[in-house]
Simulated scan of single mutants.
Amino acid sequence: MSVAGVIIDDAERALLIKRRDNGHWEPPGGVVEPGETITDALVREVLEETGIKISPDAALTGVYKNMVGLIVSMVFRCEAINGVPTTGEETRALRWVTREEVAGMADEAYAIRVLDAMDHRTPPAVRAHDGVRLV
């Protein structure tokens, strides 16, 4: 299982990271470690990949299954409580993006996660993809 956090700023932009390993633009996130709660993993992953500490009271905005990689990811809309966006070991670049910019930067399977978080849907979205496109 993995988690991802979509941090939204006051201008309604989302923070995306450009991953060092594959060069893709995505919301920050990663695998929930054994013995770690979902919330703890979310806070840790976002901090590691962005330098931003988020509130642990993030709102679930979607659940996404990679049908090829067999990974389920939970995505949360997050509020930054302190820190400055900073690249790190796993992050090549960071960028605040509008909803119009998301689709041009991220694969469909990741862009929809950001858009769902920006829309803050209730109930949360439940979607499947092949690693790149929705299925």
Score class of each variant (00 low, 15 high):
56 P>K: 04
95 R>N: 11
24 H>Y: 14
120 H>Y: 08
31 V>T: 13
90 E>R: 13
36 E>C: 10
14 A>I: 04
8 I>A: 02
132 V>I: 11
89 E>D: 07
35 G>R: 01
60 L>F: 05
112 I>G: 07
66 N>H: 11
73 S>K: 15
85 P>W: 11
5 G>V: 09
126 V>I: 14
77 R>V: 07
116 D>S: 02
26 E>V: 03
114 V>K: 03
130 D>S: 11
113 R>A: 06
13 R>E: 11
122 T>R: 13
52 I>Q: 02
108 E>Q: 03
65 K>I: 11
121 R>W: 09
81 I>A: 02
22 N>A: 09
43 V>L: 10
112 I>V: 15
61 T>G: 04
102 V>Q: 01
119 D>L: 07
85 P>K: 09
78 C>N: 02
104 G>E: 09
48 E>K: 08
125 A>W: 11
3 V>D: 06
19 R>G: 05
3 V>A: 00
61 T>P: 04
51 G>F: 02
15 L>F: 06
63 V>M: 04
45 E>R: 13
7 I>W: 00
110 Y>V: 03
92 R>M: 15
54 I>S: 00
13 R>V: 00
29 G>F: 01
104 G>L: 08
78 C>K: 05
10 D>M: 08
31 V>W: 03
16 L>G: 10
45 E>V: 00
64 Y>Q: 07
68 V>L: 14
77 R>L: 02
8 I>G: 03
42 L>M: 12
1 M>D: 11
78 C>P: 02
79 E>P: 08
72 V>C: 14
112 I>T: 14
